[in-house]
Design a protein around this nucleic acid. Structure first.
Lengths: 302, 302
DNA sequence: AGATAATTTTTGTCCAGGACAAAATAGCGG
DNA sequence: CCGCTATTTTGTCCTGGACAAAAATTATCT
């Protein structure tokens, strides 16, 4: 156990805490207090990195760093539930057990079993209900489980990867019509989560829209270029719950200013739940909202 | 054209140049020289952001910032070819025209046509040859075209997204056997490109290996946990050409130190081409190398 | 000449410690 | 108990210095 050391860039990579934050915490709270190498640069131990990961996870749940850092080490299990059921209940319907069974497959690392079970649900429910009643709640529950430390990061990654495959596969199976409106789907550069976007894409395609999937992390100026090149009617962005809430509004304002006014800007996902209204931007708080936005647009004869 | 302003974080997001670099360039070269807002914070104009993007693109081709910044504005078209054909020729076989036609579809933003043409090639070539003779060279050419400014960023994104879908779809269609060895596929946290990983996964699955796809951006300590939980025989990482070359070796060394010695560590992709050998790490310089590594392992009776 | 070694320049990243604004919390009057 | 204003907390930005790795250049040797 030679405790490999991490420099500050590696800790930023591992924990997601910026170098500035790591330094200012050290200055203010005295933690983390890394060793220094011969040149005076910080060298963090694996234990400190682990603890920082725990703190980060609890912060994402709404706790504040000042409190967390003061605490000994029993904060871990204790501080699980904070504003847990903040929005959207777990839907205590008859499906709850089914969903729990699916999560159990992930927890047992049974990729094959999970994919098969999910594919069965697609066949049984149809794509739209599968997205709304299976993928969406599952993904919410996985998020919850991750935040409370009940599942590991890599288990969430496995779930996400397998779910993306299922959705893409089923989207590809839809007729490739050149429908209307033309919807460009992407995320901003710091948002790497694409699952929400795929859910929206599935629903939009089912309604006959033409979706142009550009993946994640498009610079704003590229979004503008792409929307013009593809003659898009709508630019749809997705923000996950992990996206720093404070950045959402400025980003949307900036993009709205860059985008021609005849192109609509839709923003959805868990990351916009707490965002205030922005002129010229449609905030879609749920998949139902997104569907309804599309319907009302299509009714208005476009 | 009210030239919306970008703060330093936005410029980092748009260009991929770190805040430290932006500040030190300003100090040393006098460019970029952003306005300051009332609180003294930098406010970059859209023109400066554009120019920074150009410079970044040329730097990725091997040019040096000190020279580029001094140049007027005609550097753009002139400085296209530098060490262009550094490794792996464009393969001047009879297929060249076909590939050019595929790229032309992307350039015309014809997603449907591109997907159809690609699906035809899968049917005609079979998955293995499709990966090696279509996806790999196409992806290389798209990268070249992007570096020389012949295609836009969003066109590359479209190509990548559509190609990922094709590969995932065709991987899903393979028999889901519980084969050997068990290969865990992922990338390190700063590497978001997954296409190379999917190519490898397709080839590995065709050889009967069991692949565990965890998507991108796994913290090193999570990779270790995942490899133990999944009882993986091999951890396979992919590094794209965009990955900062200087970080590859330290990362691999660090992961090798964290990983149990009985688990093999394979690293492939354009990003490891110029990496020196590392004890305990197999550097796979091409897809053929990867296949051969798997073969020789299977022959040795595992 | 051509290859190798030593030196210089270039370049990215790290550091310290100050400042400030937005968000979260606490205090207070209705 | 609710809505409003102070205060604390917290993240991000700032300046300007330092240094090491990489690249380029120069010197040296065969």
């Amino acid at each position: 156990m030679s405790s490999p050391n991490f420099n500050i860039a590696a800790v930023e990579r591992e924990t997601g805490l910026s170098k500035d934050v790591l330094r200012v915490w050290e200055r203010r709270y005295g933690f983390p207090s890394p060793e220094r190498d011969s040149t005076g640069e910080r060298q963090y131990s694996a234990e400190q990195v682990d603890r920082l990961c725990q703190i980060k996870r609890l912060m994402d749940r709404g706790h504040r760093p000042g409190k967390l850092i003061a605490l000994p080490t029993e904060e871990l299990a204790v501080l699980a539930p904070r504003h847990a059921n903040v929005a959207g209940e777990p839907a205590e319907n008859a499906d709850a057990d089914d969903l729990a069974a699916l999560i159990e497959l992930i927890r047992r690392h049974d990729a094959t079993g999970f994919t098969q079970a999910m594919q069965q649900r697609v066949a049984r429910q149809g794509l739209q209900r599968f997205v709304q009643d299976t993928i969406a709640p599952l993904s919410w529950q996985i998020g919850q489980a991750w935040e409370s430390g009940r599942i590991e990061v890599f288990e969430e990654h496995l779930f996400t990867e397998l779910s993306k495959r299922l959705l893409r596969q089923n989207i590809a199976a839809l007729p490739a019509g050149r429908g209307h409106p033309r919807i460009l789907l992407t995320t901003v550069p710091e948002e790497q989560h694409v699952l929400g976007l795929l859910m929206a894409e599935a629903l939009f395609c089912l309604e006959g829209a033409e979706c142009i999937p550009l993946g994640t992390q498009m610079p704003l100026m590229e979004i503008v270029r792409a929307s013009e090149a593809h003659a898009a009617d709508i630019v749809a962005l997705s923000f996950s719950s992990a996206f720093p809430a404070r950045q959402v509004a400025p980003l949307l304002q900036q993009l709205r200013a860059l985008l021609p006014s005849e192109i609509c800007l839709w923003a959805g996902g868990a990351g916009v739940q707490r965002t205030a209204a922005i002129p010229g931007v449609s905030l879609l708080l749920s998949l139902e909202d997104a569907l309804q936005a599309l319907h009302s647009r299509q009714q208005m004869g476009v």
